[in-house]
């Protein structure tokens, strides 16, 4: 999916005006300003940073760009915005109580993960997680480059002549 460049520039300008705020999140994760981010993330960089941090703690893949975590969350935000806001607020309250700072500002991954473990049985956490387990891993753009999964094959004649049995076990 190619983003509309005009919209992106406008939105990025808006994002840049807000990015001082983003920089304050440095302990956590600044949004990657150069990448193609979904509009909602550009419009609400603070929300995006918090959800991105959470998504990357749930399914950490350093090599996968921000937008792949953020794009699939849009329908969830549209349908359950209140639940998400409340969930993030509660996560921050929990973070401030134990670490004296917001969740995204906690630098140690293990400490953030421990906080998430405390809420993993809740609706908020599982909504984000279940959205990402499909949104992140059912994205054909990531399959081959990141996972080495080749996706649909019938239109290429399957793998009969394309390596279904090409493995040589030479490591033993």
């Amino acid at each position: 999916m190619k983003p509309d460049p005009r919209a992106t520039i406008l939105s990025r300008r808006r994002f840049l005006t807000l990015s001082g705020q983003g920089a304050l999140l440095a302990g956590g994760l600044a949004l990657s300003a150069g990448a193609w981010l979904p509009r909602w993330a550009l419009a609400e960089p603070d929300l995006a940073s918090r959800l991105l941090r959470m998504g990357r703690d749930i399914y950490p893949h350093e090599a996968i760009a921000d937008r792949y975590y953020l794009e699939p969350l849009q329908p969830l935000l549209e349908e359950q915005r209140e639940m998400i806001d409340a969930g993030l607020a509660a996560l921050d309250r929990r973070a401030r109580a134990t670490h004296g700072r917001d969740y995204v500002a906690i630098e140690d991954e293990r400490e953030r993960v421990a906080l998430l473990r405390e809420i993993e049985d809740g609706e908020f956490f599982q909504s984000v997680r279940n959205t990402l387990v499909v949104g992140l891993y059912d994205n054909p753009e990531l399959w081959e480059p990141h996972f080495g999964y080749e996706g649909s094959s019938w239109e290429k004649g399957g793998y009969l002549n394309r390596g279904f049995n090409d493995l040589v076990i030479d490591w033993l």
Partner: peptide, 15 residues
Amino acid sequence: NGGWGRDITSALDKY
């Protein structure tokens, strides 16, 4: 509910 984190993604990275 607990099936997330690096245990999971380190296997997926080796899909």
